[in-house]
């Protein structure tokens, strides 16, 4: 479904991605792990055209999106929903306006249908009756869930989760993990999750890929990751300060 081929990206002298290659299969949940600042967010922002690579290809359903014009990219973006690290709710809009924002642009639904879809999407993430609240009235966990409701409202084929469990308590983080699993089961969605939370990774992943020094150094199932012979992977998954990983 998605093929990332030899992706390179630098910001000034800082080489963030140095030849990332990765395949994502339809319907699977791929978790990308890596240190903070390793380029995980940069990688997934490439997938919806927020960042243009210096070199390499991203093929989504047979189309190389790195060569698309802005208006063509718009159609490809429709396939993606994204849950941002900070939820990125529009703070001047109510919850309902936030959730219906993508619907207004990506669908031709009537206002009544949109209202129904907003309520359905909020119910899917376990929230009801909060349509008229403003983002500043929500807790961190609720914001993430509203962000997820917004991302799934127009029924995308792929959801990108940027650090879904960061900044919330372990119980709410686990509730978000359950939501990711439910999205996969209920709407057969393909998910790409980036995180450095290993508990979350083991729970939601079909496959785990590790990004280190701008490259994918390991891609395998959660069970295989635990048995990995790669010392860097072992140091990361055990959260040890001692080992081959430098620059922490």
């Amino acid at each position: 479904m998605i093929q990332i081929i030899d992706l390179h990206k630098s910001f000034g002298p800082n080489k963030v991605l140095q030849g990332v290659s990765l395949n994502v299969k339809k319907g699977e949940t791929l978790v990308i792990i890596g240190q903070s600042g390793s380029g995980k967010s940069v990688l997934i922002k490439h997938l919806i055209g927020l960042i243009k690579p210096d070199k390499g290809k991203i093929v989504v359903d047979g189309v190389d999106i790195t060569r698309l014009r802005e208006d063509e990219l718009y159609k490809t973006r429709r396939k993606f929903g994204m849950l941002f690290q900070s939820a990125a709710l529009f703070d001047s809009m109510t919850v309902a306006q936030n959730v219906s924002f993508g619907l207004e642009r990506y669908s031709k639904m009537s206002q009544k249908e949109r209202r129904k879809r907003v309520a359905e999407s909020l119910a899917m993430v376990g929230l009801r009756g909060i349509e008229n609240l403003m983002p500043h009235e929500l807790s961190g966990g609720m914001k993430k869930r509203v962000g997820l409701a917004r991302a799934i409202s127009y029924r995308p084929e792929i959801i990108l989760y940027d650090e879904p469990s960061t900044g919330i308590d372990p119980i709410r983080a686990d509730a978000i993990n359950d939501l990711i699993i439910r999205m996969k089961k209920e709407i057969k969605i393909t998910s790409i999750v980036i995180t450095h939370d290993m508990v979350s990774s083991y729970k939601v992943a079909d496959r785990i890929a590790m990004l280190y020094q701008g490259k994918i150094i390991e891609t395998c199932t959660p069970e295989a990751v635990k048995e990995s012979k790669n010392q860097i992977v072992q140091q990361f998954i055990h959260g040890s300060a001692e080992g081959p990983i430098e620059n922490w």
């Binding site: 718009y74 973006r77 990125a88 529009f90 703070d91 924002f101």
Partner: peptide, 15 residues
């Protein structure tokens, strides 16, 4: 909006 990723969110939602 820029530093809280709301601009990126606009892009991702087709605006």
């Amino acid at each position: 909006m820029k530093i809280t990723e709301q601009i990126d969110a606009l892009f991702s939602l087709g605006a």
